[in-house]
């Protein structure tokens, strides 16, 4: 299932691994996305390495969220949204309509920018997807619910009210519940769209530590506006920018390289806080 970077010599993907050999989890080739006649981003060639944290940075509206949606075909649900190009997951081209999107989304889970818990109890929010994927044993479900809530630092806050509505939680708690819900399914990759944007510094650092601790078991792709956070946790950084009215990938590479020695002057200005 996992292929090396060199498997597709025809296109030159922006390779964030200049030094050592690294397996690619997912790779996009000339990926473009349009909403009606508005291009969200175009011609993005990017490889996401296995078991690493890749941070996606860039100004608002440059297509980061849209890019994440392509990677697990959530774009199928958005009306008038056209995707072109290739997204390779192992040997599969996941944009192929024959691929089962449900199986894909189990492997690649997306946590959206806006917390979106279901209008069910806290417990059911996590248990419903578990049951859907065939887990019937009540004790096992309880164990996973507790474990995933502990992982996101929410267990102590909600352990006495697991039967209460998830909508009664605060915004930050909802966001962590959504992360817990995705973690409970044990996907291979997690796509996190600004997971800390609604959180206070303390829970933000809880989530940040969580993300770092997940790194060896999962492939993580995280969108963040917080460059300090990207600097702290990311192994690789990809920088998007709006050029000619559409988002483009202007630079990617290892975190040290992008922050210390950016190739593009725009990136340099952005990471040094001059623009964006």
């Amino acid at each position: 299932m996992k292929t090396s970077l060199n498997s597709t010599p025809s296109v030159r993907p922006c390779t964030p691994t200049p030094s050592h050999h690294q397996e690619t989890f997912i790779q996009t080739e000339r990926l473009s996305l349009r909403y009606g006649c508005k291009t969200a981003f175009c011609d993005v060639n990017l490889s996401i390495p296995v078991g690493c944290i890749t941070a996606l940075v860039g100004p608002s509206g440059c297509g980061k969220s849209s890019f994440l949606c392509c990677l697990n075909r959530l774009t199928d649900l958005i009306p008038c949204c056209q995707v072109s190009g290739k997204v390779r997951l192992g040997k599969l081209d996941i944009l192929n309509p024959k691929i089962d999107p449900i199986a894909l989304r189990r492997r690649v889970s997306l946590i959206s920018q806006k917390p979106n818990p279901f209008p069910l109890s806290i417990w059911q929010n996590i248990a419903l997807p578990l049951k859907e994927h065939g887990l019937r044993n009540r004790e096992e479900i309880d164990r996973i619910v507790e474990q995933s809530l502990r992982d996101v630092g929410l267990w102590d806050e909600v352990k006495d009210r697991l039967k209460d509505s998830a909508l009664a939680l605060s915004g930050g708690q909802q966001q962590r519940l959504c992360i817990a819900r995705a973690l409970a399914l044990k996907p291979e990759a997690l796509l996190l769209d600004e997971p800390c944007s609604a959180l206070d510094p303390i829970s933000s650092s809880v989530v940040e530590d969580l993300i770092v601790s997940l790194k060896h078991h999962y492939t993580l792709l995280i969108v963040t506006h917080n460059l300090a956070q990207a600097r702290r946790i990311a192994d690789y950084v990809a920088c998007f920018w709006v050029k000619d009215d559409s988002g483009q990938l202007i630079e990617c590479g290892s975190a040290e390289q992008v922050f210390a020695d950016p190739q593009s002057p725009i990136t340099a200005a952005y990471v040094n806080g001059i623009r964006g």
């Binding site: 999107p101 449900i102 189990r106 959206s112 979106n116 279901f118 069910l120």
Partner: peptide
């Protein structure tokens, strides 16, 4: 029913039937 529920359900790999019965119809 907010579209967020449909997106969230889809990104967790819930089938359309489950989404309909467990989330959309109750809402």
């Amino acid at each position: 029913v907010p579209n967020d529920y449909r997106l969230a359900a889809a990104s967790l790999g819930l089938s359309r039937t489950t989404t309909l019965w467990q989330l959309l119809l109750p809402a």
